[in-house]
Design a protein around this nucleic acid. Structure first.
Lengths: 348, 348
DNA sequence: CGGCGGGATGTTTACGTCAACATGGACGGC
DNA sequence: GCCGTCCATGTTGACGTAAACATCCCGCCG
């Protein structure tokens, strides 16, 4: 069978390409270069010509081809975000902030979810998001099984990590976890509690570890006894389980949960066990989710600004992309104690 | 000043391009075409040659250039997701599901957030995400100010809309909102409540409207009185405000809130007003967030499967991309009633 | 032992854009 | 009136890849 030339009525399977500059140029009776100039808003084009080209563009439905543009310029104007546990409160907020910060700069976001943060998954994400598909990468992976040294990144690609760990070669941005945990613990201590129990996040999580250590350091600095930390997995259910154990111990009067969801589970456990909040037991969370103000009772918690984290991460990355030099110091954003109704002095 | 040729030590501002096939070819002593064959896993390459090329790739750190590939093939292997209110429970879950479904197909996701779903924003998103930058688009915009007819989409680009509205020309996937609202209302009715009050979502939201209408229809079908719907904005705070008003009316024994967050606000309002849940007032939510099982009391609610929605949307879009033909019928996924402790028969 | 088939590999070219250089006409100054 | 300048526009080529086509070599069969 002779090779068939695709003509007017192409079969459905044929990838129809959109009109190119050449089509516009033909339509407007100018050269392709002039079309390019108009498309890029260059000034040295006669007004009449510009109008003619614009009209031709509209007529043929021209859209610039970003692949050709990227090939030509060596830039994609897009950044990759490697993210695990996307639906998580903090991560989705941060991602939204990143997106919002990136769009006005004319960049777009390529999302690379990893289901589990194993070495294979992360490097896999990197090769899919292969070196040349993005101009830079933001890594937003809460919980690693792996050392930074194991993460094999294509060399020379700008990277920013959102994590307050100092173990990276890359610029780092995060909320100041230690600062927040210290505020929470101090708040309870200053209300008169003799010590504060802690429900930690999973040990693989750096921020969980940082909160736990800071809680411990704050107690030690105050000369308080350091009870053993219970460990959860961020979920309300794990908070509930831990809360049940705490509720059974009448000496417990103050609990600092490493996030609001676990704090919610604690509240439920306390209610079910008939222990009043805050008159018998005080509870502090971490995150300040939108819901927390309406827990029963409304939760005292640590507010972190995911928006600021996203903004700073984008700023650092874009700077690195433009200048080619890495941002220096890690950025740690301060947190804020939000006092509501779940904390009070201990029973007399 | 004579033009400076970028040599070995280029200034930081120089965009360094990665090694190309030509570099690998030179290194391996073969033609570029052979490199291409190896990169694409073609079979007609001698094993020894393949090894040599692979080694050369590793040595020079070769990564395929996706821009060139996209330009060559006319396909990007990426899909755009236009999304508003990303940190929202349902949206972040759906987005995650979309991402998870898309990656194994070798596609990547380009995220286009719109801050407000106005005409300008949406069309703006489309032109940024210009026709050729993606192979298809999923629209996930909860709440429009605009008619479908006003959304100007580049013609011929495959689109799937996540929304159960029938007002689109495009294939549509969503949870069956009407089904869910009907289940919630029937559940309360079947417990013996004479009627059910409703706290609706914002009227600009199609799903909010659908839930409200279905609640009303279910009451009418049962011959129950239809109390006026209160309207919130999905936030716990708005649920709290509405809850306060409902709590003040002793005739209210059953409340169906259009989402779990508003239900949370209602619970708080009821607690503060001293009305017991569920013995005096029953409450049903919608969504089944992870937290809802640990509300006080644990919330009876409607579970929707955002994962399934994401999967179906991707399947429909990919099919449209491959075959060029639109999927036919809208897909409506069933919901599920999850009974917990916030509902009971009305007080005698 | 010559020709033929087939697999491995090389060469050419087009994809759409835009920088760099080329061209050509208008206008102003001397 | 001649030359230099500036501005609008055109022409060429390169970015990295891969399809289509060309070539070459080897082994097998008649």
């Amino acid at each position: 069978m002779p090779r068939q030339t695709a003509t007017s009525s192409a079969p459905a399977s044929t990838r129809r390409r959109g009109p190119s500059m050449a089509d516009v140029a033909r339509e407007a009776g100018v050269s392709g270069q002039t079309v390019s100039r108009v498309a890029n808003g260059k000034t040295n084009v006669d007004d009449a010509t510009r109008e003619r080209v614009l009209a031709a563009m509209r007529r043929v439905g021209y859209r610039p081809n970003s692949a050709a543009r990227a090939l030509r310029n060596g830039q994609f104007r897009s950044i990759g975000v490697i993210i695990s546990a996307l639906p998580t409160f903090g991560n989705s907020r941060t991602l939204d902030a990143i997106a919002a910060a990136v769009v006005p700069e004319g960049f777009s976001i390529i999302l690379m979810p990893v289901t589990r943060p194993t070495q294979g998954e992360v490097t896999g994400a990197f090769s899919t998001l292969n070196e040349q598909a993005v101009d830079g990468v933001i890594i937003l992976i809460e919980q690693h099984q792996l050392d930074q040294s194991e993460i094999e990144l294509p060399h020379g690609l700008p990277v920013v990590v959102i994590d307050s760990s100092a173990r990276y070669d890359y610029p780092v941005v995060d909320n100041d976890q230690a600062d927040g945990a210290s505020r929470a613990t101090s708040h309870l201590l200053s209300l008169g509690h003799s010590t504060v129990w802690h429900i930690a996040g999973p040990p693989q999580s750096y921020s969980a570890e940082r909160r736990r250590k800071s809680w411990q350091a704050t107690l030690e600095r105050a000369g308080s006894a350091v009870p053993p930390a219970l460990v959860g997995d961020w979920s309300p259910e794990s908070g509930y389980q831990a809360g049940l154990r705490l509720a059974a111990d009448p000496s417990v009067t103050a609990v600092f949960a490493a996030n609001d969801q676990m704090a919610l589970g604690v509240l439920r456990a306390l209610h079910e066990s008939g222990r009043a909040v805050p008159s018998e037991v005080s509870v502090v969370g971490f995150d300040d989710m939108e819901e927390s103000a309406h827990f029963w009772p409304p939760l005292t918690t640590i507010r972190q600004s995911f928006e600021a984290v996203g903004r700073h991460a984008v700023r650092a990355l874009l700077a690195e992309i433009e200048t080619g030099t890495e941002a220096g110091e890690p950025v740690l954003l301060p947190t804020e104690l939000v006092i509501r109704s779940s904390t009070a002095p201990p029973p007399a």
